[in-house]
Simulated scan of single mutants.
Amino acid sequence: MATLPKLAVVSFLILFAIGAKAGPNFDIIAELENGPGNVTVTDNGRIIMSMHQFYQPKYTVVEYKDKKLVPFPNKELADVDSKAVLKLDSVLGIRSANGIVWMLDNGMRSGVMPKLVGWDIKADRLHQVINLPPPIAPKDEFVNDFAVDTRRNHIFISDPAGGTNAGLIVVNLNTGTVRRVLEGHSSVIPENIDLIINKVPIQVKDKSGKLVRPHIGVNPITEDLNNEWVYFGPMHGHSLYRIKADDLANETLDDKALASRVERYSDKPISDGITVDKDNNIYLGELAENAIGIISSDRKYRRLSQCPRLSWVDSFSFGPNGNLYAVVNRLHQSATLNGGALEAKPPFYLLQVKALATGLPGR
């Protein structure tokens, strides 16, 4: 008879564990008609998103305001049909810091030079434009995401490019100088692994029309809240790396010296954008499993939530009050990554994720 209470306790614990595993740690705060790219949330709570170029959006950057999307910073810059001399063509990476929203325009829709555009949201005016000409951004560039270093006034950009020539781009915001570093290093080039979601492989058409399974280089990138370490890795890769921001910003280090400063940090799944909180938990989307997970400070990965609605979690950003936001865009069902067949249908999602600790707004 004494064993019955023990069995009951064990059964309760098993049920609790199952429930805890299945329970979502996110809320859908907006259903979107068009596929988002990346998201940033300013320190006063403005939610600003790039719209993913794979879905040919009318506006390249929007603000989620009063439960609808409006062009950001204005129609003149954000509208693809704008006749303005300066306009945004194909923005993916987007971050905010110190009142500036930074937008990384890869220029791929129109074949124009990629550029980094900063908009002052307090003064509501253009802050800075930095062009990324070749060879800083090669012909097959896909400048994708970036981290803003507010201590050194630098930006570190990930460029998966053609895979074997993937690299990082270091931007000195004080001088406007740009450098390409770590090109072809093992920490930035993709591994020979395929991304398969719901038993369907990611496939693109090459120039001959043949279907191939792409392997994408460095994409996820973030910096800790102390502006000490920059974390990055190939999208198609099972390793996350890090390097000290001081070393990345050091213009006197040659390629060999800089490469020697790169550390393998942890295992990771195939993933897109990442962010980090004050306790050094790194958040990411586990693309193959429709999941959100973290790499904790002990360098171990675990899932936080798994759900069919978490179908390609692309980007994260902390906002004020410790809130963590993310976007879902189902890129594997876009025509670009689905062998030419568009299967993605709205709604796409803007999420609020229950973070384990607070983070820095805009990051």
Rank of each mutant, 00 (worst) to 15 (best):
S296W: 02
L360D: 12
L331I: 14
C307R: 08
V327C: 09
D314A: 14
I294E: 06
V328A: 07
A326R: 02
G339T: 10
P347W: 06
L331A: 13
N323M: 03
S315H: 02
L350M: 07
V353H: 01
N281H: 14
Y349H: 13
G285S: 10
P320D: 03
V353D: 04
P308N: 11
E343K: 15
T275R: 05
K278Y: 06
E343Y: 00
P308I: 01
K345Y: 03
C307A: 14
S297L: 01
S271F: 00
L310F: 05
Y283F: 14
V328G: 11
D314Y: 04
R299I: 00
R309T: 12
N323I: 00
S296K: 10
L287S: 11
T336I: 13
L350Q: 10
L351R: 00
S334Y: 06
G359L: 06
G359P: 10
V327R: 09
R299H: 14
I294M: 04
A326K: 02
L342G: 03
V353P: 04
P347S: 10
V276E: 09
V276Y: 00
A288G: 15
R302K: 15
D272Y: 04
I292F: 08
A357V: 01
Q333Y: 12
Y283N: 09
G273C: 03
S271E: 02
L284D: 09
W312A: 08
L304T: 00
A344W: 02
P320L: 05
Y349N: 04
F318P: 12
N323E: 14
R302N: 06
S296G: 15
I292C: 10
L284S: 09
G285T: 07
K300D: 07
L356W: 02
N321C: 00
K345M: 10
V327Y: 05
T358D: 14
G359Q: 05
G293P: 12
E286G: 09
P320S: 05
D298F: 03
L351C: 00
L287K: 05
V327Q: 11
K354E: 13
S296T: 09
V313L: 02
P347Q: 11
S317E: 03
I282C: 07
L342V: 05
